[in-house]
Each structure stands twice: as C-alpha cells, then as structure tokens.
C-alpha cells in the first residue's frame, strides 16, 4: 500500500464509523448527544479541567499559607527573642541594681524585688521556650535526624511512652523547608499519639530510599477510623498531608484497631536536596 493509501486508511479508521465515534467520545471531542427526544450536553472534559485547576489552586494556596505561616513564626520568634528577650534581660538587670542599692531602712522592698526578679526569670524562660517552639533552631544546629531523635527522647519523657528512632541519614543536611516540614509532621504525629492513641510503643523513622525521603511514625495504639482520617475537621491530619503534598510528596495513614497507626510521608529526594554529607 502506498504511503498515501496508509494515511487514507488511518484517517477513515480513526474519524469515521463506530471507531471514529468511540474515539471522539473517548477524547472528549463531543459536546452534545442528540437523543430521540432531547439533546444532552457533554461537558465532562471542561468540568474535569475546572476541577483539576481549582484543585491546583487550592494546593498552591495551602502551600503558600504554610510557607507564610512558617516565615511568620520565624519572624515572631526573632521579635520575641530580640525585643522581648532583651527588654526582660534589662528589666532583670535593673531589679538586681535596685536590690543592691536598697537602703537598710527600706528592707521590706527587698522581698518585693526578689519576687519581681523571680517572675522576670520565669518570663525569660518562657520566652525562650516559645522561641524554640516557634523556630526549631535545633534543626539548624543539629540537623534533622538529631533533632528528631531528641524529639523522640523528649516525647518519651513527657508522654511516658517508649519512642524509638531509626534513620539512615545521619550526618545529612536537608533543605530547610523540607526539614521544617518533616519536623512539624513528626511533632504533630507524636502529639496525636500522646493525645489519642493510648499506645505502649512508638517508632519514628527517617529513611532515605532511592527516590524518596520516607518518614514514618508507627504506634501500637487504638487506631484511627477511616472517617476521622478523611474528615474535614481533622485539621492536624490535613496539615500534615498538605505539608507533604506541598513538597511534591504523598501522605498516607494506615490504621487498624489491632495494629495501631502507621503514618507515612514520602517526599521526592529532588525536593529535599540532601547535602554532600550523604553522597555515599
């Protein structure tokens, strides 16, 4: 058959007859179906496109909100540390000066000054705690793996539940947004375990695979119902999922009454930018 003949056959096959009709329907090239009594519009593709684009917009918005929230947190932490922390420190110094310069006749003032000084000390401590909570500075100093390890240890102390930690990324440095996301996911997951799971064991793992960085938090508690996992009100879970998706990853919660809960967040390595320390 000549090349022209071949083209002819293909044209006929793909555009005419039953095959042509099927192809047009399959590729969404049809916009109305003419019935015996009425004409039905077919706007599937359009609806799909609109759905997809609004879904993408929602994703972008969430990612934006999360990053705004993180940078706000950093800004607030800096303000708190620099402004409030400084002010409290000079207040503390002022009180110490007063205490030193109180005349014997004004002795009763000393007790008052001592109480104010104690209050100031505890304010300074809470500002420091808030700063740490807002801006996980440990992430920068220790790196992700060590920070998670210390989170696990803190969790054991506060929740009283043994919490193991495994990783194959020791010494690696991660892109800060990815590290912050993973850190917050693990924090939220551990808080959930402490608050809801009634578990007797928890394991956190941060594993580098060929293509992904995989974070898991597994507990042997009572499990979560599918309904709660998918609920629009589970803002903690939605937040974890959106943090993962914002990094191009996937998030799953698998749960059963007998096996507890397994949270898995997979983030493509390309979005995590692991430093040269793990080039091995």
């Amino acid at each position: 058959m000549s090349p022209q003949g071949t083209a002819h056959r293909e044209g006929i096959d793909s555009l005419t007859g039953a095959a042509g009709l099927a192809r047009a329907l399959r590729t969404h090239e049809v916009d109305a179906i003419v019935g015996v009594r009425d004409i039905m519009f077919v706007r599937l593709k359009q609806a799909e496109d609109e759905l997809e684009s609004s879904r993408n917009q929602l994703r972008a918005l969430t990612a934006h909100l999360l990053s705004v929230r993180d940078s706000e947190r950093v800004a607030i932490a800096r303000e708190l540390h620099d402004e409030f922390g400084q002010a409290l420190t000079s207040l503390q110094l002022g009180l110490a000066w007063l205490a030193r310069n109180v005349k014997p006749a004004q002795k009763p003032l000393l007790t008052k000054i001592g109480a104010l000084s104690d209050a100031t000390t505890s304010l300074i401590r809470s500002v420091k705690n808030i700063t740490v909570e807002l801006r996980p500075g440990a992430l920068d100093e220790l790196g992700l793996a060590k920070t998670l390890k210390s989170s696990a240890r803190e969790f054991e102390g506060s929740a009283g539940i043994p919490c193991g930690f495994r990783t194959n990324t020791a010494g690696a440095t991660f892109d800060r947004p990815a590290a912050v996301a993973v850190y917050r996911i693990v924090q939220a997951a551990l808080t959930n375990v402490a608050r809801h799971a009634r578990a007797s064991n928890v394991t956190v793992a941060l594993m580098k695979r060929t293509y992904d960085l995989v974070v898991t938090v597994r507990d042997d508690g009572k499990g979560i119902s599918r309904k709660l996992i998918d609920s629009q009100n589970s803002l903690g879970i939605i937040g974890m999922r959106e943090r993962t998706v914002a990094l191009g990853g996937t998030f799953t919660l698998a749960s059963s009454r007998s096996n507890g809960t397994l949270l898995t967040a997979r983030i493509p390595l390309s979005r995590v930018v692991i430093g040269p320390a793990t080039a091995a």
């Binding site: 022209q4 083209a7 002819h8 056959r9 293909e10 044209g11 006929i12 793909s14 555009l15 005419t16 042509g20 009709l21 192809r23 047009a24 590729t27 090239e29 049809v30």
Partner: peptide, 14 residues
C-alpha cells in the same frame, strides 16, 4: 466524521 477534526492529516485522508 466525528469530533473536532484536530488532526488535518487524518481529516484529509478521510
């Protein structure tokens, strides 16, 4: 012919 006729070569052949 059915559809949007988006492939000129196929339309010409048909």
């Amino acid at each position: 012919l059915f559809g949007t006729l988006r492939d000129p070569a196929q339309v010409l052949a048909a």
